[in-house]
């Protein structure tokens, strides 16, 4: 310890590390806690093989399919914020319209989500339209 105390730089670094640890610890616990939550709630566990998407009913999606594949999460999140906070409601593009073509959440949304291991928690409160 003697040598440590005579080195101001070491001292500073060590002090910073201790604080970083203390500040990070709760965050880590939070992360692990919510992680446990996610696995607990995911309805159908991934069973292997590439995702098998059910064919959609309608003619075409409200946006080009490849764009949707890449951006639907941001699109939905942005719309969510607009709807909640600005009251924007576009009925031709509402979630009810999604369900008219993609009738089963299990055979559509969950397929990829399980495959890539993400668990959005939208439908813990909202119900997927029937």
């Amino acid at each position: 310890m003697r040598s440590l105390q005579s080195h101001p730089l070491k001292f500073t670094v060590l002090l910073a590390l201790v604080w970083a640890f203390v500040l990070v610890l709760p965050t880590m616990v939070v992360a692990s806690g919510s992680g446990a939550d996610v696995t607990q709630h995911s309805k159908s566990a991934y069973t292997g093989g590439p995702p098998q998407l059910e064919n959609a009913k309608g003619e075409a999606c409200i946006r080009p399919s490849d764009w949707m594949r890449r951006n639907h999460m941001d699109f939905l999140k942005h719309r969510r914020a607009q709807t909640v906070r600005e009251g924007l409601r576009i009925r031709s593009e509402s979630l009810i319209k999604c369900a008219e073509c993609h009738q089963s959440r299990e055979k559509f949304c969950d397929q990829c989500h399980n495959y890539v291991g993400v668990a959005p928690d939208c439908f813990e409160c909202h119900s997927y339209p029937k």
Binding site: W19, V22, L23, P26, V29, V30, A31, G33, S34
Partner: peptide, 15 residues
């Protein structure tokens, strides 16, 4: 730090 830890960990949605 001790006090803040308690305050933050008691949130309804600490995540």
């Amino acid at each position: 730090i001790g006090g803040l830890a308690v305050l933050m960990l008691d949130l309804g949605r600490p995540d």
